[in-house]
Design a protein around this nucleic acid. Structure first.
Length: 817
RNA sequence: GCCGGGGUGGCGGAAUGGUAGACGCGGCGGCCUCAAAAGCCGCUGUCCUCACGGGCAUGCGGGUUCGACUCCCGCCCCCGGCACCA
C-alpha cells in the first residue's frame, strides 16, 4: 500500500497529544456545578491502589482498563460518567518499606503517588483528577476519624481485650502476615499471643442484614458467595450444662454451649472448654490445677496463626470437674483443649464423638466414651462406630426421641430443653467484630482521649483532624504499644469533657477503615466542611458499577457495606447498600504462571507502553482472556492487537467516500450489535475478536474501503483504544472528542441478516456437506437441496431414511437405518 | 475437608443442545523493502489417502438425545478463597 505523504501510526505521538488535550479541555473532569447538574449520572468506580514504590503493576492496569472500558462505553451511550481514582496509602506495607529503606513514609508516599499518577495518566484512563483522594492527607483522614466518631457515639465501637501476635524478642505486635510458620519474620523467634485492649466495631450486630441484603445485589456470584460464607450463619441451639461439685451436686453455675446438632445431645459424653474460657478456674479440681495451668500457658504461647492450623493431633487436659448432661442426666467430664476456640460460639462445646469428626478423634486419643445416637440406613442402635457418622438418619439411644428423623429430633429436643429452662434455639455467625486498632505508626490516630475520670472520650468534631505528627523514630520498640506512645508532647492532652489531664489514644486505625468509605468522598472533594455533601451524594450514589478484584471480596466489601449501613441508620445516607453492581475481574498470569517477584516473571508495564503504546497494551489486556476470569499474558501475543491498530489506522486514513458494499455493511452492522452486547456485559475478549474479524472483512482482498464501512469501527474501538480513536475521528473530519455527545454507533437489525445462510447437512449426526439457502427457507426446499448435494447423496445411497431432523437456517440431519 | 472457577490444537482462547477450534500468537512457504518497522498472500488439530474423501479428537468412565465441549450421574487433575466455626 503506497502511503507516501501520509504519516504512519506513531502511538507515542498520538497518545501524548490526546492526554494533553484531554487535560487542557477538561474532557474527563467535572466542576462541582457539573456534578451537581449531571443529567444522567453514572458512577464508575474501581478499587483505588496502594501506591507502592515499585509502581503500577500489570494487575492494576488490567483492572483499571477493564473498568475504564466500561466507563468509556457508558459515556459513549450518553451517560455522564464520573470515574475517580485515588490512593490507599496508609498501612503496614508503606511502614515496613519505609523502615527497611530508612525513608520516612511522609517522604516516601508523596513520591510514590506522583509516580502512580504519571503512570495512570499514561494508560489513558478517563480519570477525574479534580476529585482524587489520598487517605494519608489530613483533609481526608479528618473524615475517617469522623466516621469512627459516628460509630463511637452510636455505641457501635467498643474497647475490649483481644489477642495479638507478640514477638518476645523484638517486643512488638505483629500482623498475621508478619508471622512466618509461627515465627517472627524479622528475627525468627517463635511468636506468642498477648491480650491487649483494642477498639472493635460491632459489625456482628449487622450480620443478618448484611446476609439478607446480598440477595438484592447485582454482584458477581463468586463475590456474593464469599460474603455469605464469611458471615457463616448457622442455626442451632445454646444449651446449658449444670456444673457439679465433688459430691455430684449442682453448684449453681452452668456452662453454655452452642451446637448445630442439639439432636445429638444424648451422645454428648464429655465437655470441652477453650483454654481461655472464663470458667476454667472454677471447674478445675485441686489435683488437676498444675496440668490445666501448664496447658493453658502452652496454648497462649502459640501464635494466632499456628493456633488455627488444622490437621494437627488433638491435645487437651482433664480439669477434674464434671457437669450434667441435661438430656441423659449423667455426669460428664470437663476437659480443656485448644481445638475449641474462644472466638466462636460460647467458647465451649458439648462433645459428641459419635457424630463429630473432631470429637471422635479427641475421644479416641483420650479414651472417652463414644455413643451412637444417630442410625443411618442399615444401622441399628448397637452398630459400632469406627468413625464419626455425620450423615442422615434417625435417633437412637435418645430416650423418648428414639426413632425420630434427626431434623425433627433437632427441633423437638430443643423445645424439650427450652421447656425445662436448659436451652434455646439460637443463630450463630462466623463473622467477628471488626478490630480496627493497630499498634502502629502509619495510620490515622483514633480520635479518642483516655481520661482517668471520664474514661474514653471522643475528640470533639471541631478539633478534627487529630494529626499524625511527623516522628522520625517510628520503629516499634519494647514498649509493646504504638510508637506514638513515646511521643509525650503529642499524647499528653486534656480531657474534652472534664478538662483534667488525659492521654490520647495512641493506636491508629485499620486501613480498611480508610477504604471503607472513600467512594463516598470522591464526589464531594470540593467540600472541606463535610465528609460528603447531601445533594451530590443523592445524585451520584450508590455507585453504579464497581469493578475490582475478588481478593477484597470479604473484608473491604463487607466493611464498606457495613459502614454504609451504619451511616444510613444514623441519617447520613439515603441508601444502605453502596454498590449496586459489583463485578470481580480475573487474575492475570504470565506464561501460565502466577506473577511474583521471586519467580522473576513480573510484567513491567512502562517498557511495553513505550514500545507499543497504551492503546495496544489496553487492547491486548482486554483481548487475552475473559475479563471476569483473567488470562495469560504472553509477550509475543501483543503483536496481534498492535498489527490490528496499524491496519485500522491505514484503513481509516485511506478510505473513500463511496457507498458501502451490501455484504460488508451487513458485517459492520452485525459487529456493532455484537460489540454493543458484549462490551456492556464485560465480554471484552470476544468483542475485540469481533472487531478484528470485521476489519478483516472490510479490508478483504485489498478492496477500496468506504468511509461508512470503517467509521463505526473507530467508534467501537474507542473504549479500548481511546487515543487512536480520537485521532482517527479527528482526521476523518469530525469535531470535538469522540467521547462527547453519545457517539456509540447504532445498528439496523434488518442489516444484520445475510441474504444466504449455510445449512449443515448431516447423515446420522455426521457432517456430510453444507448447502446455501435463503434465510427462512422452508423444510421441503432445504431438504431437497440437501439431498442434491453430491457427497450427501452418496451417503444416502442404499439406505432407508427413517427420519429427517430440520432446524431452520441451521441444519438438516438424515437419520438412516 | 468446604465454597468458587476451570480442564478444548504447539500456545492464549471461541462456540443459545445443531458445521468444534472464531479471533489472535507461534510455525512453515512466498511478496514488498537497500534495510528495518509496518504491511500483503497462502498453509497450519491429528491419522489414512496422489486426490476425492474418510477415521479419530473438547480430562476419564457411563447415561440422555436424531445430534453433547454444552444436559445428567460417578471419578481424576489444576487454579483461587476459607478452614479444628461446634
Amino acid at each position: 500500500m503506497a502511503n507516501e505523504g501520509r504519516d504512519a501510526y506513531a502511538p507515542a505521538e498520538v497518545e501524548e497529544k490526546w492526554q494533553r488535550l484531554w487535560e487542557e479541555r477538561g474532557t474527563n473532569t467535572y466542576t462541582r456545578e457539573a456534578l451537581e447538574g449531571a443529567p444522567d449520572p453514572f458512577y464508575n468506580l474501581m478499587m483505588f491502589p496502594y501506591p507502592s514504590a515499585e509502581g503500577l503493576h500489570v494487575g492494576n492496569i488490567y483492572a483499571f482498563t477493564g473498568a475504564d472500558v466500561h466507563g468509556r462505553y457508558q459515556r459513549m451511550r450518553g451517560h455522564t460518567v464520573f470515574e475517580p481514582i485515588g490512593f490507599d496509602a496508609f498501612g503496614i506495607h508503606s511502614e515496613n518499606f519505609a523502615l527497611k529503606r530508612g525513608i520516612h513514609p511522609m517522604d516516601l508516599i508523596p513520591s510514590n503517588v506522583r509516580n502512580f499518577t504519571r503512570q495512570l495518566r499514561r494508560t489513558g484512563g478517563m480519570f477525574d483528577w479534580r476529585h482524587t483522594v489520598d487517605t494519608t492527607d489530613p483533609a481526608y483522614y479528618r473524615w475517617t476519624q469522623w466516621v469512627f466518631l459516628q460509630l463511637f457515639e452510636a455505641g457501635l465501637a467498643e474497647r475490649k481485650e483481644a489477642p495479638v501476635n507478640w514477638c518476645p524478642s523484638c517486643k512488638t505486635v505483629l500482623a498475621n502476615e508478619q508471622v512466618i510458620a509461627g515465627a517472627c519474620e524479622r528475627c525468627g523467634t517463635p511468636v506468642e499471643q498477648r491480650r491487649i485492649a483494642q477498639w472493635f466495631f460491632k459489625i456482628t450486630r449487622y450480620a443478618q442484614r448484611l446476609l439478607d441484603n446480598l440477595a438484592t445485589l447485582d454482584w458477581s456470584d463468586s463475590t456474593r458467595k464469599a460474603q455469605e460464607n464469611w458471615i457463616g450463619r448457622s442455626d442451632g441451639a445454646e444449651l446449658r450444662f449444670p456444673v457439679l461439685d465433688a459430691d455430684g451436686d449442682e453448684t449453681g453455675t452452668h456452662i453454655d454451649v452452642f451446637t448445630t446438632r442439639p439432636d445429638t445431645i444424648f451422645g454428648a459424653t464429655y465437655m470441652v472448654l477453650s483454654p481461655e474460657h472464663p470458667l476454667v478456674d472454677d471447674v478445675t479440681e485441686e489435683g488437676h490445677r498444675k496440668g490445666v495451668f501448664a496447658y493453658r500457658e502452652e496454648a497462649a504461647r502459640k501464635d494466632l496463626v499456628a493456633r488455627q492450623k488444622t490437621d494437627k493431633t488433638k491435645t487437651g487436659v482433664f480439669t477434674g470437674g464434671y457437669c450434667r448432661n441435661p438430656a441423659t442426666g449423667e455426669a460428664i467430664p470437663i476437659w480443656i483443649a485448644d481445638y475449641v476456640l474462644m472466638e466462636y460460639g460460647t467458647g465451649a462445646i458439648m462433645a459428641v464423638p459419635g457424630h463429630d469428626e473432631r470429637d471422635f478423634e479427641f475421644a479416641t486419643a483420650f479414651e472417652l466414651p463414644i455413643v451412637r445416637v444417630v442410625a443411618g440406613a442399615g444401622d441399628s442402635a448397637g452398630t459400632p462406630l469406627t468413625e464419626a457418622y455425620a450423615g442422615d438418619g434417625t435417633l437412637v439411644n435418645s430416650g423418648e426421641f428414639d426413632g425420630l428423623p434427626w431434623q425433627e429430633g433437632k427441633r423437638r429436643i430443643t423445645e424439650w430443653l427450652e421447656g425445662r429452662g436448659l436451652g434455646e434455639a439460637r443463630v450463630n455467625y462466623r463473622l467477628h467484630d471488626w478490630c480496627i486498632s493497630r499498634q502502629r505508626y502509619w495510620g490515622p490516630p483514633i480520635p479518642i482521649v483516655h481520661c482517668p475520670t471520664c474514661g474514653p472520650v471522643a475528640v470533639p468534631e471541631s478539633e478534627l483532624p487529630v494529626v499524625l505528627p511527623r516522628v522520625e523514630d517510628f520503629k516499634p520498640d519494647d514498649s509493646g504499644v504504638s510508637p506514638m506512645a513515646r511521643v509525650e508532647e503529642w499524647y499528653r492532652t486534656t480531657c474534652p469533657r472534664c478538662g483534667g489531664e488525659a492521654r490520647r489514644e495512641t493506636d491508629v486505625s485499620d486501613t480498611f477503615l480508610d477504604s471503607g468509605w472513600y467512594f463516598l468522598r470522591y464526589p464531594s472533594t470540593d467540600f472541606d466542611d463535610r465528609p460528603f455533601d447531601r445533594g451530590l451524594t443523592t445524585r451520584w450514589l450508590p455507585v453504579t458499577t464497581y469493578i475490582g478484584g475478588n481478593e477484597h471480596a470479604v473484608l473491604h466489601l463487607m466493611y464498606a457495606r457495613f459502614l454504609t449501613m451504619v451511616l444510613h441508620d444514623l441519617g447520613h445516607l439515603p441508601f444502605e447498600e453502596p454498590f449496586t453492581v459489583f463485578r470481580a475481574h480475573g487474575l492475570i498470569t504470565h506464561d501460565g504462571a502466577k506473577m511474583s517477584k521471586s519467580r522473576g516473571n513480573v510484567v513491567i508495564p512502562d517498557p511495553i507502553i513505550e514500545e507499543f503504546g497504551a492503546d495496544t497494551f489496553r487492547l491486548y489486556l482486554m483481548f487475552l482472556g475473559p475479563f471476569e476470569e483473567g488470562g495469560d499474558y504472553r509477550d509475543e501475543g501483543i503483536q496481534g492487537p498492535y498489527g490490528f491498530l496499524h491496519r485500522l489506522w491505514d484503513t481509516a486514513l485511506t478510505c473513500g467516500d463511496g457507498a458501502p458494499e451490501a455484504s460488508v455493511e451487513r458485517k459492520v452492522h452485525r459487529t456493532i450489535k455484537q460489540v454493543t452486547e458484549q462490551v456492556a456485559t464485560l465480554q471484552y475478549n470476544t468483542a475485540v475478536a469481533a472487531l478484528m474479524e470485521c476489519l478483516n472483512a472490510v479490508r478483504a482482498g485489498g478492496r477500496q474501503v468506504a468511509r461508512a464501512e470503517i467509521e463505526p469501527l473507530v467508534a467501537l474501538v474507542a473504549p479500548f483504544a481511546p487515543h487512536i480513536a480520537e485521532e482517527l475521528w479527528e482526521r476523518m473530519g469530525n469535531e470535538g472528542s469522540i467521547f462527547d455527545g453519545a457517539r456509540w454507533p447504532a445498528y439496523d437489525d434488518a442489516k444484520t441478516v445475510d441474504d444466504t445462510v449455510k445449512v449443515a447437512v448431516q447423515v446420522n449426526g455426521k457432517l456430510r456437506g453444507t448447502v446455501d439457502v435463503a434465510p427462512g427457507s422452508p423444510e421441503a426446499a432445504v431438504v431437497a437441496a440437501a439431498r442434491a448435494e453430491e457427497n450427501v447423496s452418496r451417503h444416502l445411497e442404499g439406505v432407508t431414511v427413517r427420519k429427517v431432523v430440520f432446524v431452520k437456517d441451521r441444519l438438516v440431519n438424515f437419520v438412516v437405518s
